[in-house]
């Protein structure tokens, strides 16, 4: 019986790092993308084309209300009535204290709808809002 002579070379365990790097990259990209998406997860609206106050970012608004061109109120992808808006605003205010909601209103929406929205927010105890604009001119 012949046995192969043992090699004198030291045995090293070589690990292939490629899958690890792949997974790390994938995770990194996933978190980067989801973070970005969370920030951009907002309704497609043609906002008023104004420069705004150019003061930089503010604090957490607590509530984001969208107003469509047809005057519908949309919060988190659900259409809401003024009564529902009042309920939501009161609840958020109760949970978070003083809030300054962001109102994203389509530039072509009737001001009457914006008036009704602002009146409802005011009657819910909210003293100020942030009106989103798109610096376009």
């Amino acid at each position: 019986m012949r046995f192969r002579a043992r090699s004198n070379r030291p045995r090293t365990l070589e690990q292939d790092l490629t899958p690890l790097i792949d997974v790390v990259f994938q995770l990194l990209i996933f978190f980067l993308t989801t973070t970005q998406l969370a920030a951009q997860a907002q309704m497609e609206l043609d906002l008023p084309r104004e420069r705004g106050e150019q003061r930089g970012g503010g604090r957490d608004p607590g509530l984001i209300v969208n107003l469509t061109r047809t005057g519908e109120i949309v919060i988190l992808d659900s259409t809401r009535s003024l009564q529902e808006l009042a309920t939501i605003a009161r609840r958020v205010r109760l949970e978070q204290g003083e809030i300054r909601p962001v109102v994203r209103a389509d530039r072509g929406a009737p001001a009457a709808a914006l008036n009704a929205l602002f009146t409802t927010l005011r009657e819910s105890g909210i003293e100020g809002v942030t009106l989103a604009v798109s610096p376009g001119r």
Partner: peptide, 12 residues
Amino acid sequence: AGRPEDRLSPQL
């Protein structure tokens, strides 16, 4: 996706 938005801040 990253279109910038600014703001106006009126009191009610």
